[in-house]
Amino acid sequence: MQAVIVAGGKGTRLRPLTYQMPKPMLPLFERPFLVFLVERCREAGITDIVINVHYQAHQIQQYFGDGSRFGVRIRYSIEESALDTAGAVKLAEPLFSGAPLVVFNADILTDLDLKALIAAHRSAGAVATIALTRVEDPTAFGLVELDSDDRVLAFREKPTAEEAARLGIDTVNAGTYVLEPHIFAPVPAATPWSFERQLFPGLLAAAQPVLGFVSSAYWLDIGNPAKYWQAHSDILTGHMPYSLAAREHRPGIWIAPNAEVDPQAQLEAPCYIGEYCRLGPQATIAAGTILGSASLVNRPLSAGLYPPGTMVP
């Protein structure tokens, strides 16, 4: 297997956080989110990775290099202009090995079982397998309709509440795919091309087998500030499994090894205190606080996501 991570977007919904940093490099508990995706590939046995880059590409290339530091091989496909999702993967075609591709959108936090997704793709003999998740309110998403064998029948644009109720469909595209590389042959080069609007509907029109893999795994699009904050909160509360580089001093109280916390400081669960932070005796850390590294606090701090170097003397 080979992985392609689509990481070239400008992250406009996350501004101002992304003015000087590409969205996949935003930290999730002090580690770039893209590290999480690379490690997920390695843990699933996928060590040949292509990362599509465009906006602030040099930051990603400098951080990951050839991937050897992470136990994988990384190469880069550089977009000169935005090519949309399928167009970005098409650009990487010269780097394809011929093996099936596991494709990721670089703004999805999930604990989806990649090995199970790959096994389902192989068992079904599909040319494309789309991870799907169920949502309570489908009006904000395009819906994916399946038959009784989980083959995709149709893609439906964002429905009204009445249409969603009538259709009885709550499965939406979860942003992770297993794809046979030959399906990109008809995609025009250097042309913006969409998975949802062009490539996948084209496969259905050509009667190609497209599988829907419905999962109950945790799933969150972290592409806006509210969702980015929710990702941290869900990890702290245990809704999303994630390895924190900190010790749980008390239930829900996570403190990094090099942080200094005065015994009189008051910490409410859940919260996270980053590397080299210093909390004085008057510090009160409210529940739901994520304090970035090298921060100084000596008075009450309300819940929120605080960047590294925050000073509250």
Score class of each variant (00 low, 15 high):
I78Y: 14
P32V: 12
N52D: 12
D48L: 00
D66A: 13
I49T: 06
N105L: 10
I49M: 07
L114Y: 08
F70M: 10
A92M: 07
V103P: 02
A106F: 03
Q61L: 15
P94G: 11
I108P: 01
Q61A: 14
A106Y: 02
I108A: 04
A82H: 11
T47E: 13
D111W: 00
A82T: 06
H58W: 14
G67Q: 12
D111I: 01
G98M: 02
Q56A: 11
A86L: 10
A106T: 03
D107P: 01
I51T: 10
F33C: 05
F70D: 12
L37P: 00
T85Y: 10
D113W: 03
D84L: 15
L83W: 06
Y76F: 10
F96H: 04
L83D: 08
L114G: 04
A88T: 15
A44H: 07
L117Y: 08
G67V: 09
R75S: 15
F33R: 05
I74F: 06
E39D: 13
A88W: 04
E43N: 05
P32H: 13
L83K: 11
N105W: 03
A119I: 00
E93M: 13
I49R: 07
R42V: 11
L83G: 05
S77Y: 08
V102I: 15
L37D: 01
L91K: 14
F36I: 01
F36T: 06
P94N: 12
F96G: 04
K90T: 04
V102T: 14
E79D: 10
G65R: 06
N105P: 00
A44D: 08
I108C: 04
D84A: 15
E79Y: 01
S77M: 08
E43K: 11
Y76I: 06
L109Q: 08
A82Q: 06
S97E: 04
A88F: 05
T47G: 11
D66G: 09
H54P: 00
G71P: 02
F96E: 05
E43D: 12
R40E: 02
A57D: 02
Y76K: 06
N52I: 15
P32W: 12
I51K: 11
G87W: 10
L91G: 02
E79K: 10
L112R: 00
V89H: 11
L101V: 04
G67D: 10
V35R: 06
V53T: 07
N52L: 10
R69E: 14
A116T: 13
Q61R: 15
V89W: 11
Y76C: 04
V53N: 03
G67Y: 09
I78N: 09
C41P: 04
K115R: 12
T47P: 02
A92T: 08
I108L: 07
L37C: 02
V72L: 10
V53F: 03
L109T: 05
D84T: 09
N105Q: 14
D113R: 05
